[in-house]
Write a protein that binds this DNA or RNA. Structure first.
Lengths: 185, 185
DNA sequence: CTATAGTGGAACACGATTGTTCCGTTGTGG
DNA sequence: CCACAACGGAACAATCGTGTTCCACTATAG
């Protein structure tokens, strides 16, 4: 069994990615040296995994997309009442935490694949239109606005945690309650 | 009457600031050359007004604070029913447009003065607590959360305009309607 | 034990940005 | 017309981040 098969490479890669998220969320213009220090690896090691800075950025973007996709599936958006499914979706998205925040504030992450509608986007759009058909959503709220507000409330929730030092659980409750009230017909 | 008194210096300073906003909103890591080109001035002129890059950034931050302060006063937050005052506040804030978006996404702008509570913050906090006392706001919504949601909805509104190509007026209407529903007891 | 994968660190070249200096030009008030 | 304020542009040194190369160290599979 070689070292590669033990998953060592995969683990250092993850360490670099996670450190990159943690570092860039604090300072979007941080250098690779900062990321390396945060990851506890040498700067050269980063270049071994990601030849250029842009390669790291796109890998981070893809990583977020993967996490969003997994979270969407985990929420089972097609099961049960639409509003309950939206609640589950928010809970899963909220767990993404810092991974999400960076996608909001770093346009450099959202370069190529973010433009095309992802599988998650389609599932969420289907869920929202189902909720509309079920009469669970105020008809005055367009689907695109609902989608926008859903993500923005996640952002507000985490800001509430970070700036107002609110407990995670309270912030999530406020997110869910606020979304429910917006959607209410 | 000297040239300085004609406001020439003030106008070029404004041109530089406005160009900096317009440029950095598109590319947060744009160089001073880009800003100079956008402003239609030489790069050296920028250094005449702002010795260092950081000086430009802090001036931009202060400028946004001033605009927020002016918008807050213009909304007359102490007059009439609290909910109506909140509506006026949102309308004024929404007009700030790009100036606001940058404050959301550029931590470098919000360095020193942004930490301490501004006069506007205090006026808004007073308005929210007044609304609470009037029974116009769901008691389950803490004041800090209301404040957070108010700003975040402005962001959502402009994203709705930019990404979903919604008319400004529609986006503002959705913002107001959504906030009203969240606040409803 | 030995070969190899993985790593850290020093050193280097390169490009971009920044901050500064100097000089020529423009335009306007007096 | 003259003086002065303001500007643009060229040139320069200094800094910083990037990308690369090379070498030594460690641990582990075989």
């Amino acid at each position: 069994m070689t070292v590669a098969d033990t998953g060592l490479r995969a683990r250092t890669r993850r360490a670099i990615l996670d450190a990159a998220f943690a570092t860039l969320i604090k300072n979007p213009s941080a250098s690779l040296s900062d990321v390396a220090a945060s990851a506890g690896v040498g700067r050269t090691t980063i270049h071994r995994y990601f030849p250029e800075r842009s390669a790291l950025l796109t890998a981070m973007g893809q990583d977020v997309l993967d996490k969003i996709g997994a979270a969407t599936l985990k929420a089972r958006p097609e099961e049960g009442p639409a509003l309950a499914a939206l609640d589950r979706l928010c809970q899963e998205y909220f767990e993404l935490g810092d991974y999400l925040m960076l996608a909001f504030m770093e346009p450099t992450l959202t370069s190529p694949e973010w433009e095309e509608e992802s599988e998650s986007d389609r599932m969420v759009a289907k869920l929202i239109s189902r909720a509309h058909r079920e009469g669970s959503i105020d008809p005055a709220m367009p689907a695109s606005w609902v989608h926008q507000v859903l993500w923005t409330l996640m952002y507000a929730g985490w800001q509430h945690v970070r700036e107002d030092e609110a407990p995670k659980h309270d912030a999530l409750t406020l997110c869910l309650r606020s979304l429910r009230k917006i959607l209410a017909p």
